[in-house]
Amino acid sequence: MLSDGFVHFVEYELQVIALAWLFVLYAIKILQLLRLPMLREKGPGKGSAVSGALRSYANIFLPWSMESSKKHFWRWVEFGAYHVGAGIAILNTFTSPFAPGMMTQPVRWAFAILIAPALLLGLVKLARRITRPEMRLISTPDDYFSLASVELFFFSAIMALLLNTPLWRTVYFLITAGFLFYVPFSKISHYVYFFFAATITGGRYGWRGVRPPAREVK
């Protein structure tokens, strides 16, 4: 039997501690990154670095802009659904404890429905990583662990949303806290570095007049 005090601690204090840990570690990482040389373009530009960076941010929402998403459109849909699910599961870690008023039954169902495809797609990703030799070769224990822990996070989120019992809420928030403690060390942190890369690489392409691209002629 879980005491109310423990459930409250897991839902509130533990989350605050875990979030503080995450932010401190990211702050250190970002400071370390910003101290490194930037390799800026120094010649006269042909285009705009700002447009290039913006285009780089937008790329992922424009499946026709990359062959990798145009040719494998289903993969792009998978990517989108997976990240929408992840976003909703993360959002729920804030709304459930801090805005319980908005978590009505229809909202809970809507959240669960959006997270469910991500849970299934995570299994597909895991299977692909294990069965495809190309994926197996590049995978490390961190890859498998990260994927598996995100699956657990999704699953517990769905259970907590649908059942809303102290047990499932506790499981969900314990997994969330564990997740927040681990994320700064894992490849899941890719979303932080993305902003640096999109700015630098996108800026370079923009400055050189490479991207935004000219229309492809068939």
Partner: peptide
Amino acid sequence: YNKLVGTAASNMCAHCGWCMDS
């Protein structure tokens, strides 16, 4: 390698494999 872009590249690859057939 120890430049912002290299360090970012070392940490942000999610091993998704999208680059493979490019």
